[in-house]
Amino acid sequence: MPEIIEITVYRLDELSDAAKETARAWYREGGFDYDWYDAVYEDFQRIAEILGIRLKARPVRLFGGGTRQEPCIWFRGFGSQGDGACYEGHWDYTKGAAKRIREYAPQDDALHRIADALQTIQRRNFYQLRAEASHRGHYYHEYCMAISVERDSPTWQDMTADAEELVIEALRDLARWLYRQLEREYDYLSSDEAVDETIIGNGYTFTEVGRRFG
């Protein structure tokens, strides 16, 4: 014979502090199975474009069949050895990048420094430098980027002695910047405030001890 069992369920704001922590832990464990980083990626694509970086793309299979192109950006985080972010792309000189990055992100000194560094080394090489960044290995951080630098000189003139090192460091600095933005976004989305807002907005209910009910 089937039995009817009655149970009292609670909204998040009706739980004790300890039960709220249990409810939040439940959400954090499975609540990030979506592309929560999309906004950061979109921002990074715009910044890369301003700096003169054409990100490579890769095909990604869709559930309904077919594929779509996604930028070659990867990351792994947070808090473990080997965590970081990287990307693949082609870089060359883009006029006005330092000015445009300040217009786009006026408060971001790190991006200003990266744009200035790239512009300075281009100037020393008559704006003829270009580079390619490719991912290598099984990890995703700035040192997993193999970066080749060359000078496209019509007279076969060599690049300045410091050019390769400075370009590589600037492009890796950009990968570090990207990782910091991803970490900041994740920290916000997993904060008590954001988690509570999501739980309440979705109408989740819990048992008295904070276990998910419905």
Rank of each mutant, 00 (worst) to 15 (best):
E185G: 02
Y104R: 09
V195A: 02
G203F: 02
E70D: 15
W91L: 12
R11W: 03
G89Y: 04
S134F: 05
Q45D: 10
G79L: 06
Y204K: 10
A105I: 00
L15C: 04
R151C: 05
L118T: 13
I4K: 02
R100C: 07
E88G: 09
R100G: 01
H135G: 15
Y204W: 04
H135D: 00
G82V: 13
G210Q: 11
D192Y: 13
S190N: 04
D173P: 00
A146C: 00
W74I: 07
F206S: 01
E3Q: 15
Y27P: 04
Y188H: 15
L189K: 03
Q107C: 13
V195W: 00
C86K: 08
A85I: 11
A97S: 04
I5R: 11
A25V: 04
E164Q: 08
I5C: 07
T205H: 08
I168G: 00
E14G: 00
Y87N: 03
E42D: 14
F78V: 10
E185K: 14
A98P: 01
E197R: 12
L171T: 06
T120Y: 08
R28G: 02
Y104S: 12
Q107M: 14
A97R: 07
R102T: 13
I121H: 07
A48M: 07
E6M: 08
R102S: 05
G52A: 15
D17S: 07
M1E: 07
E183R: 08
E70Q: 13
G210P: 14
A161L: 01
V167I: 03
A175E: 02
R11I: 02
E197M: 09
A131M: 01
G137F: 02
G201F: 05
E150Y: 12
A85E: 02
E103I: 11
T8G: 02
V209N: 09
S148C: 03
K99M: 10
I4L: 09
A25P: 02
T205L: 11
E21P: 04
A194M: 05
R212E: 05
A115S: 08
F75C: 12
L55M: 14
R212G: 05
L178Y: 08
R136N: 10
M145F: 07
G79N: 08
A131T: 01
H90Q: 11
H112A: 12
L182Q: 02
V149N: 01
R123D: 12
A97Q: 09
D196P: 04
S80L: 15
Y37C: 02
I121C: 04
D109K: 15
E208T: 10
I147H: 08
R68I: 09
Q45F: 01
A133L: 03
L12Q: 00
G89E: 06
Y140R: 13
R46D: 13
E164V: 06
A170D: 06
D152H: 13
R180G: 11
L15W: 04
L62E: 10
R124W: 09
F78L: 11
I50Y: 15
D173I: 07
Y37G: 03
W177I: 03
L111M: 02
S134N: 05
E150R: 14
G30N: 06
T160G: 12
G82I: 15
Q119E: 15
G31I: 00
Y204L: 04
R76C: 08
K99N: 14
Y139S: 08
P59H: 13
Y139R: 08
R212K: 12
D108V: 00
E165G: 10
E6R: 09
P154A: 03
M1P: 07
E208C: 04
